[in-house]
Design a binder for these strands. Structure first.
Length: 465
RNA sequence: UCCGAAGUAGCUCAGUGGUAGAGCAGGCGGCUGUUAACCGCCGGGUCGUAGGUUCAAUCCCUACCUUCGGAGCCA
């Protein structure tokens, strides 16, 4: 059985022991002193292991000296103290077997040099062999595990809300259609419309844009629940912050108000980033050095700083009385622009802040109406360096108020019959929030384009891999 | 979708109205317990696509495609 390079570099194998490693070549350097140095990575950690291959090996000239970046190898040998600088231990090889050659080294897309992220995106099947995408991938995993650990340890249940939805009541944005109908020969009703009754589900179906409405049903039985899964938006968004397919985390808690929701959001962010700093110090050091010098400081600060709370109305007053010149003017009733959010969290609070109680007209129908009848119990958690990172709310649990809001927003109560049922049968105050997983990864690593923090990005005109 | 920028060797880029260069990568050789090493030599490009202007276009013009950045939408 091969050892993981992570375990070897962490001191899990004593010097002098015989080990086998399996991985891919980063670089080969020959020395005429009669040996070659192979930097081998297996993805288990950020660093590669240096393998020293002496010229006495039987296949030295035939194989080892022909090794290029990207070849896969199996190396067996003794773990020894390194004679050179840059690594503490290295593998003195008794055998180096090339498991897979690189066909044409001249055109192998990955080279031992710095590539642009744009270029790497064009070779998404190979880009994970680079330092940076490997690091992103391990960070992504570590954060995902921390998310589940946070909720599990606090008694939350993970609910697998559906990917396909036929309710068309989720509200947020353009949705992808799901259909098995023959596009070239659509069945029609007598009045010439598409006969959706002939489609797979007997009605129009789409990919979900949020698991929230579904997860609320489970919340009102299991008390503490969350979703963590893929979400889809068919918006023609071409930005470094949007994907057509992304992962979202949406906890929902029963017998809870907005204050409890904000506290949950604070505890949650602190937990996952603390765990990340602990588990992936190697990769975070890499991001700090090559991608974003502030990233570790930013996370450390968030973990240690108490989040403030600020009423939306106070936030507006603060913005209005500031001397800052904003591109968008500030009046009560507007949705805060990115520049406003950054100002509040970076200049006013100088730390994370939960802005609460937004005007009802700029928020969704399901958010709970406050006593002033003008605002709803919504919150946005803002953080320095990014602005909004979490959005959430207390949900409207009073049926008559919910119905009024549905009507005001020109929605159809009938579309929400099962959602309304929750308010008819044993309703309780409850609250939740949503976090875009990829945006959390961007925040943690400083990677600028969201397409680089998901293995295979889906965006307008982009679904090659 | 709107605004702006860019597409020249495998990669990163420079460059000129008279069909092009560098660094890295690759091949060969030299050198070294090396650290995306270093030194020398060599191969490699219908300059995004399609039209147009011109004696002549990679360079100027138009359209399109693609990518990037910003905006909107939002997570």
């Amino acid at each position: 059985m091969a050892s993981r390079i992570a375990s070897i570099l962490a001191g899990g194998e004593p010097v002098g022991s015989k080990v086998t490693i399996e991985g891919w070549i980063r670089t080969r350097r020959d020395s005429k002193a009669g040996l070659s140095f192979l930097a081998v990575h297996d993805g288990s950690c950020h660093d590669a292991l240096q393998v020293v291959a002496p010229a006495e090996l039987a296949n030295y000239a035939s194989d080892i000296q022909r090794i290029t970046t990207g070849c896969s190898v199996r190396c067996i040998g003794e773990l020894v103290q390194s004679q050179g600088k840059g690594q503490s231990v290295e593998l003195r090889a008794d055998s180096v077997e090339v498991v897979g050659w690189v066909d044409d080294p001249d055109t192998y897309p990955m080279q031992p040099k710095r590539h642009t992220m744009e270029y790497l995106r064009e070779v998404a099947h190979l880009r994970v062999r680079t330092n940076i995408v490997g690091a992103i991938t391990r960070v992504r995993h570590s954060l995902a595990q921390a998310v589940h650990r946070f909720f599990h340890e606090r008694g939350f249940f993970w609910i697998h809300t559906p990917i396909i939805t036929a309710s068309d009541a989720e509200g947020a944005g353009q949705m992808f259609r799901v259909s098995t109908l023959d596009l070239a020969n659509l069945p029609k009703t007598p009045d010439g419309k598409i006969d959706w009754d002939k489609d797979f589900f007997g009605k129009e179906a789409r990919l979900t844009v949020s698991g929230q409405l579904n997860v609320e049903t489970y919340c009102l039985a299991l008390s503490k629940v969350y979703t963590f899964g893929p979400t889809f938006r068919a918006e023609n968004s071409n930005t470094r912050r949007h994907l057509a397919e992304f992962w979202m985390i949406e906890p929902e808690i029963a017998f809870a108000d907005l204050a409890a929701d904000a506290q949950l959001a604070e505890d949650f962010l602190k937990f996952i980033f603390k765990e990340l700093l602990r588990e992936r110090a190697d990769d975070m050091a890499f991001f700090e050095k090559f991608v974003d010098p502030e990233c570790v400081k930013r996370l450390t600060s968030m973990v240690e700083t108490k989040f403030e709370r600020m009423d939306y109305s106070d936030a507006i007053k603060t913005l209005q009385s500031s001397k800052e010149k904003f591109e968008y003017p500030v009046t009560w009733g507007i949705d805060l622009q990115s520049e406003h959010e950054r100002f509040l969290t970076e200049k006013v609070v100088k730390g994370p802040v939960a802005v609460i109680n937004y005007p009802k007209d700029i928020k969704a129908f399901y958010m709970r109406l406050n006593a002033d009848e003008k605002t709803v119990a919504a919150m946005d958690v803002l953080a320095p360096g990014i602005g909004e990172i979490i959005g959430g709310s207390q949900r409207e649990e009073r049926l008559e108020v919910l119905d009024r809001r549905i009507e005001e927003m020109k929605l159809h109560a009938a579309d929400y019959w099962w959602y309304r049922d929750l308010r008819r049968y044993g309703t309780v105050p409850h609250a939740g929030f949503g976090l875009g997983f990829e945006r959390a990864i961007q925040y943690a690593t400083g990677v600028e384009n969201i397409r680089d923090v998901i293995p295979f990005p889906r965006a307008p005109r982009q679904a090659e891999f």
